Simulated scan of single mutants.
Amino acid sequence: MGGVQSVTDQDFASEVLAAEGPVLVKFTADWCPPCRMLAPVLAEMAVEQAGKLKIVSLDVDVNPETQAAYGVLSMPTLMVFKDGEPLRSMVGARAKARLMRELDDLL
Score class of each variant (00 low, 15 high):
residue 67 Q to L: 10
residue 89 S to K: 15
residue 58 L to V: 08
residue 99 L to Y: 00
residue 97 A to R: 08
residue 8 T to R: 13
residue 76 P to G: 09
residue 21 G to K: 05
residue 106 L to K: 08
residue 66 T to E: 08
residue 53 L to H: 00
residue 42 L to I: 08
residue 1 M to T: 14
residue 61 D to M: 10
residue 92 G to W: 01
residue 79 M to I: 04
residue 19 A to D: 07
residue 47 V to G: 12
residue 46 A to V: 03
residue 97 A to Q: 11
residue 34 P to K: 11
residue 2 G to E: 12
residue 9 D to N: 08
residue 107 L to W: 10
residue 105 D to C: 05
residue 45 M to S: 05
residue 19 A to Y: 06
residue 5 Q to A: 15
residue 30 D to F: 11
residue 97 A to T: 08
residue 56 V to Y: 02
residue 95 A to Y: 07
residue 95 A to E: 15
residue 12 F to E: 03
residue 56 V to K: 02
residue 38 L to S: 02
residue 15 E to S: 12
residue 70 Y to S: 01
residue 69 A to D: 13
residue 16 V to N: 00
residue 44 E to Q: 14
residue 24 L to R: 09
residue 102 E to N: 09
residue 36 R to F: 02
residue 26 K to P: 00
residue 28 T to I: 01
residue 33 P to A: 06
residue 75 M to S: 07
residue 47 V to I: 11
residue 87 L to N: 01
residue 82 K to T: 02
residue 74 S to W: 08
residue 38 L to A: 01
residue 23 V to P: 01
residue 3 G to A: 09
residue 81 F to L: 00
residue 3 G to D: 05
residue 88 R to Q: 15
residue 48 E to N: 13
residue 77 T to W: 09
residue 39 A to M: 03
residue 47 V to F: 07
residue 22 P to S: 11
residue 46 A to Y: 01
residue 102 E to L: 12
residue 1 M to F: 13
residue 86 P to K: 05
residue 18 A to T: 05
residue 51 G to H: 03
residue 12 F to T: 04
residue 105 D to I: 07
residue 67 Q to G: 12
residue 52 K to H: 14
residue 78 L to W: 04
residue 53 L to A: 00
residue 100 M to F: 03
residue 103 L to T: 06
residue 45 M to V: 01
residue 100 M to D: 09
residue 69 A to C: 09
residue 86 P to I: 03
residue 76 P to C: 08
residue 86 P to C: 09
residue 61 D to F: 11
residue 47 V to C: 05
residue 68 A to H: 12
residue 21 G to Y: 04
residue 88 R to D: 13
residue 103 L to A: 05
residue 12 F to L: 06
residue 51 G to T: 02
residue 10 Q to I: 10
residue 33 P to Y: 02
residue 92 G to R: 02
residue 22 P to R: 09
residue 5 Q to I: 15
residue 75 M to G: 06
residue 95 A to Q: 14
residue 20 E to P: 02
residue 34 P to Q: 09
residue 34 P to A: 11
residue 37 M to I: 07
residue 29 A to Y: 03
residue 35 C to W: 04
residue 84 G to L: 02
residue 38 L to C: 03
